[in-house]
């Protein structure tokens, strides 16, 4: 049931990206191009997409908070609250990549269905980037653990 529910949600999410035009990197870049505001060529559509999505998720999540999910034991809300350097640096790196081509993870993956070789390159690189972060994080944790357990007495 969980997989089926998830399939349905992914399908609806995908149609949302499709209908809104956010599957198109050129349309996303049209929003990010704020210097086009004076010439009248700016495309504010992405802001409307976010506003419409939030108009549903803000009340929807408020209601969801009071109940348990139908096919799982509990809601898994994110627990992190710290505004730390990884958050700031990660958002900045992501933004640079997003601005270079106009693809973020959702539309990137969804566009694989078009069979575009450029999208395959993007998603493969994205997967490598995610995996690189995973290696970096686990190796970092391992070296911290080593430093704590076998730290020489004179530091």
């Amino acid at each position: 049931m969980r997989a089926l529910a998830s399939l349905f949600c992914g399908f609806m999410f995908g149609w949302g990206l499709l209908i809104s035009g956010m599957i198109r990197p050129d349309k996303v870049l049209g929003f990010l191009d704020v210097l086009a505001i004076p010439s009248g060529n700016w495309d504010p559509s992405l802001a409307v997409v976010m506003a419409a999505a939030l108009a549903v998720t803000v009340p929807g999540y408020a209601l969801a908070r009071r109940r348990s999910p139908l096919f799982a034991t509990q809601n898994q809300w994110p627990k992190q609250t710290a505004i730390d350097r990884p958050l700031l640096a990660g958002a900045a790196l992501f933004g640079i990549g997003w601005g270079l081509v106009g693809l973020c993870p959702g539309p990137g993956v969804e566009n694989l269905a078009t069979g575009s070789p450029s999208v395959v390159v993007f998603v493969a690189a994205m997967a490598i980037g995610m995996f690189a972060h995973h290696l970096w994080e686990t190796r970092g944790a391992a070296s911290v653990a080593r430093a704590v357990t076998v730290a020489p007495p004179d530091g």
Binding site: L18, I19, P44, S45, V56, T57, F71
Partner: peptide, 25 residues
């Protein structure tokens, strides 16, 4: 600027997000 399709698509994205929480948490 395509406000109508943006609003419909955005609402669908939001609905999918709410459903994923209500169904699978």
């Amino acid at each position: 600027f395509t406000p109508t399709s943006a609003a419909i698509g955005g609402a669908l994205i939001g609905l999918a997000a709410v459903l994923l929480m209500r169904l699978n948490g």
